[in-house]
Nucleic acid binder design. Sequence first.
RNA 1: GUGGGUGUAGCUCAGCCGGUAGAGCGCUGGAUUGUGGUUCCAGUGGUCGAGGGUUCGAAUCCCUCCACCCACCCCA
Length: 419
Amino acid sequence: MIRAVKGTRDILPPATDLWNRVEQQARAVFHSYNYHEIRTPIFEETLLFTRGVGEDTDIVTKEMYTFTDRDGSSLTLRPECTASVMRAVVEHRLDQQAGQLKLYYMGPMFRRERPQKGRFRQFYQIGAEAIGSEAPAVDAEMVEVAAEVLRSAGLSDFQLLINSVGCPECRPKFVSGLQARLRAVAASLCSDCRRRVETNPLRVLDCKVPGDQPVIDRLPSILDCLCAACRDHFDAVLALITDRGIAFELRPRLVRGLDYYMRTTFEITHGALGAQNSVLGGGRYDGLAQALGSKVRLPGIGFSIGEDRLLMTLQEQAGSAAQEGPDLFIAPLGEEAFRAAARLALGLRRAGVSVEMALDARLKRSLEVANKLRARYALILGADEMAAGNYQLKDLITGDQQTVSRDELFERLRARHAG
RNA sequence: GUGGGUGUAGCUCAGCCGGUAGAGCGCUGGAUUGUGGUUCCAGUGGUCGAGGGUUCGAAUCCCUCCACCCACCCCA
């Protein structure tokens, strides 16, 4: 038997309704902030990601789906979308347009990791990018949009974590200073952290091993080492977020794994997720455009929602929903009635009503199916109704049944649809 | 890449000490004529993840492999 490949999965009907709802609501929120959708290719030149995401990141060193095209060029399935968006912006000079450049996207990303709860090799992200300004107001709005998208999806009880990781001026100084301190105390750290001291010193700050906490607590915080410009920027961002009434938690140890992040970084977590508890991650990337070869400086900030994880928590919050049934199930009795029913169904469908038709001529069976499909109403059309020019409309919840004319039928179902 | 757990019907699972498979749900049909949901009756359904070994006999014991899940790592 052929199965979906490891780390990929089918998203099936009852769930797809929820996915679509979440995506529609996200679009509505984005539009309310004047964001517009961008769709970039699912694969790009490998160089885009090695330069954009960073040569030494986990994503680039071990997680990319890279293949050689027939002409010998190296292509990669996108592991994230920010680099692609920036590439498109630079390529099409979208930054030349009036006003802020505000874009959103949604779609699948690919990373070859070992799957586990909340982690897939093909996963879906909903993200936004605001490009062209480094004003703290943009950061604040971005954080607000992120929270609003989650809220509109119905997510509650999430936590916003925020930090500043500095800039190319102050971060390297902090990292090398931190590394020096860590090397001195490496012996008292866990084995993972001893390795991190060399590979990813910032990550040590986020270690959860209890024995390491006393050491970690005495390490310097990046927030105490920001340069004046970064400090001012971050203070302004925090002030604006506070002013907007957004609850957040300052997390000086919050680390982002992608090289392009600088200054503001943030993350939203939810308790119902398991080890991979982050539903959203984001941050500022003022150096990305130039890393990709842009001659002009294009500061930007964005975030990305892990849609799979968002849906996972929503489903845990609400339980599994039953599939939504059609508005109307038509049960015609006999050949002639069937043809008349098909014509009626077309009219109703054009009016926006969801209609299903019976394939079985037995009324008992038809109503049984109507009930199983969770149809709201059943319409009976037999010889009697054909002769009289009307229909029997049965309410499948109350069991009430009444004779209705064509106009009354449309009236009833339109009302149902509007409500 | 490294650990740990689990693999029996479409789904959720029982089957502990070896004697060639069960339940609930689902699905199909029926309880007469053009009326669903509840109920009752019947039926459908599984090379017990795969291969090998021990044994008169293996879903059950042993080995190997595979798949999925969870965790590490890292991230969305």
